[in-house]
Amino acid sequence: MKVLKILNNNAFISYDSHGKEVIVMGNGIAFGQKVGKEVTPTGRYKIFSNTDSETNERLKAIVAEIPEEYMKITERIIFILEKQYDKKINDVVYISLTEHIHGAVERHKKGIEVTNPMLMDIKRLFKDEYEIGLSAIEDIENEFGIPFGEDEAAYIAQHLIYGQLDYMTSITDVTKLMQEIIDIIKYTFRTNFNEESIYYNRFVTHLKFFAQRVVSDQTYSDENQDLFDIFKAKYLESYGCVCKIVAHIKNHYDYDLNSDEQLYLMIHIEKISTKARLEH
């Protein structure tokens, strides 16, 4: 691809195969390059297409206005999320997270400390993102000498969570519904769950996207009625728990769970409840 304009050492503007403008980003990818030169990107890089012109313009502004060290931290954070945790994220996080980190550093320099009211919820319900947030504040300290704490790690985690959800969805609403469902399950089975277990973490991941659909009123396919009937008859206690969740969501969110949604909830509930019984 041909270099049309160099934004900084880590980004340049080019055209894709359809003649549309794109931004190519990667560590040192534009270093030593010249306008008009053909370049074959290697190593770790990201191409931002022009499907959203507003996003691209914001990205150009960030590259021009914010020191490139901030974008490098963002790029590493997202790389960890996608490659090590196998989670997909919206490209707009490259913008929002870079702006956030830059703003947090500038506020700290002015002596402004910000607490995160969702810290405990983030730590409990979004452990992967929170762990990445902790890694990110280490990077920030290494790069800028600023020692952020858990509150900032949780704020970074929130950007990663939003990037996996519909941006119109409130993370507060999603977290609230997730906790309500977990409380119903705990009450039904009269037990606490091992929050470090793989079964629980898989359930929380499923619950995150399930809660998003509910609070944003998105419908879900309904194709497994026969399988639902089989599991309903086999796992009576888990199905009874699902019925409580169905009633709660209908009463408080005016959302009707179809058989597919109930089926997947039932499967996860059966796994984590069985594991909890074996551990006690």
Rank of each mutant, 00 (worst) to 15 (best):
K2H: 10
I6H: 00
N8V: 09
N8R: 11
D16L: 07
D16F: 00
D16N: 15
S17K: 10
H18A: 11
E21I: 09
I23A: 01
A30H: 01
A30I: 00
E38D: 13
P41D: 05
Y45A: 03
Y45Q: 01
I47F: 02
F48L: 14
N50E: 06
N50M: 04
E54F: 09
E57R: 08
L59G: 03
L59Y: 01
A64Q: 10
I66V: 13
M71V: 13
K72S: 09
K72Q: 14
T74V: 02
I77P: 07
Q84S: 03
D86K: 06
D86W: 06
D91Y: 08
D91F: 08
Y94P: 10
S96M: 06
L97D: 10
T98S: 15
E99W: 04
H100L: 08
H100T: 11
G103D: 04
V105A: 12
R107I: 02
G111N: 01
I112H: 02
E113K: 14
V114Y: 04
T115W: 01
N116K: 07
K123I: 15
R124V: 05
L125H: 14
F126R: 07
K127V: 15
D128H: 01
E131N: 09
G133N: 04
G133I: 02
I137Y: 00
E138I: 13
N142I: 12
E143L: 06
F144S: 07
G145F: 09
G145V: 09
I156G: 12
A157R: 00
Q158C: 11
Y162P: 00
G163E: 06
G163C: 07
Q164N: 04
Q164H: 03
D166E: 11
M168S: 13
M168T: 13
T169S: 12
S170V: 12
I171K: 11
T175K: 10
L177H: 04
M178S: 08
M178W: 03
Q179M: 14
Q179Y: 00
E180K: 02
D183R: 09
D183I: 10
D183P: 07
I185A: 05
K186D: 07
Y187C: 12
Y187W: 14
R190K: 07
N192R: 08
N194Q: 07
S197I: 15
Y200L: 15
N201R: 15
N201D: 12
V204K: 06
F209M: 13
Q212L: 05
R213L: 08
R213K: 14
V214L: 12
V215M: 04
D217Y: 11
D217N: 14
Y220F: 10
Y220D: 00
D222H: 03
Q225C: 01
F231M: 15
Y235E: 05
Y235C: 03
E237P: 09
E237C: 09
G240L: 09
V242P: 03
V242H: 01
V242T: 01
A247Q: 15
I249Q: 08
K250S: 14
Y253T: 07
D254L: 13
Y255T: 05
Y255A: 10
N258E: 03
S259Y: 07
D260Q: 04
E261T: 02
Q262A: 02
L263N: 01
L263D: 09
L263E: 04
L265V: 13
I267G: 09
I267T: 05
H268D: 12
H268P: 11
K271W: 07
K271G: 01
I272A: 10
S273A: 15
S273R: 04
